[in-house]
Design a protein around this nucleic acid. Structure first.
Lengths: 142, 142
DNA sequence: ATTCATGCAAACGGTTTGCACGCAT
DNA sequence: ATGCGTGCAAACCGTTTGCATGAAT
């Protein structure tokens, strides 16, 4: 079955078959304003009457991560992996510990700091994980 | 059985019973230069011929974390929780992705950045997780 | 004597995998 | 026609829990 899906070219470019499931999973992740876990993707697809198995969701995610279409974040709320679309922007997140909402912040304050550390420690830094947490505007107790 | 253990007073101060196992677990964590996971603690104790069950290790860890004697980090290499002694110093880690060695770095470059974000986003930041990874001096490929 | 810590084994929950079938190429 | 993608169910693995026993207070 050929799919007219939005992401067909993206998939083709990565030598991946253009399946309905892959398209749908990418669509959910891309359309979600914040990182999302595998089960939520599964449930959102079910809401759209798209039948998919949870293991397929995991396999699709694994594939998309390996092709760097999606990135797996480390926020690790409740020991669940979270996924988001990988675009050019380096980005970090603030998570509200009360309502679990997440805000994204473009850019990164660590560049010079990492350079200084590299010089000082002889370590070659290739990446980092930074997540911040606290209370969002709505949940802030005065 | 009374134990002369080094950490008896610390435990007493927190209204925790002074048991051999708690002492031993704290000793392992405090003596380990870097964050360590539950199973490694279990194995190190076994090496010292201290018989303990893995579930006890987890329960001791839970207790120590709740009393803020130990902190549970988020580095999450291999989906295992890591634990380290909690002292006054705020600290981050660099992990070598090849040999898995970790370096600790005292201090934190994020204070002003977080203040700026709070002002900009109306978010009240209560903490963060920052881990950096790359290649250590020994594993650096030229 | 009372309360809390421990060992054991079973449960749990997110994730992965083996296998047979089905669809994209 | 071929090989990759998928569903299902079972396995996996770190962690948690229920229950009966044992040790600290």
């Amino acid at each position: 079955m050929g799919i007219g899906g939005n992401y067909g070219e993206l998939l083709k470019k990565e030598n991946l078959r253009n399946t309905k499931h892959r398209n749908s999973v990418i669509e959910i992740i891309a359309g979600n304003g914040q990182p999302i876990d595998a089960e939520s993707i599964f449930l959102k697809l079910k809401e759209q009457n798209i039948s998919i198995s949870l293991s397929t969701v995991y396999r699709v995610l694994e594939t998309l991560v390996s092709k760097e279409i999606v990135s797996k974040t480390s926020i690790n709320c409740d020991n669940k992996a979270l996924y988001e679309i990988k675009d050019a922007q380096h980005r970090h997140h603030l998570m509200c510990v009360k309502c679990k909402k997440m805000l994204s912040v473009d850019g990164c304050p660590l560049e010079e700091y990492e350079k200084a550390l590299e010089d000082k420690l002889g370590f070659s830094i290739k990446g980092h994980k930074l997540e911040m947490f606290g209370y969002c505007q709505d949940c802030k107790q005065e």
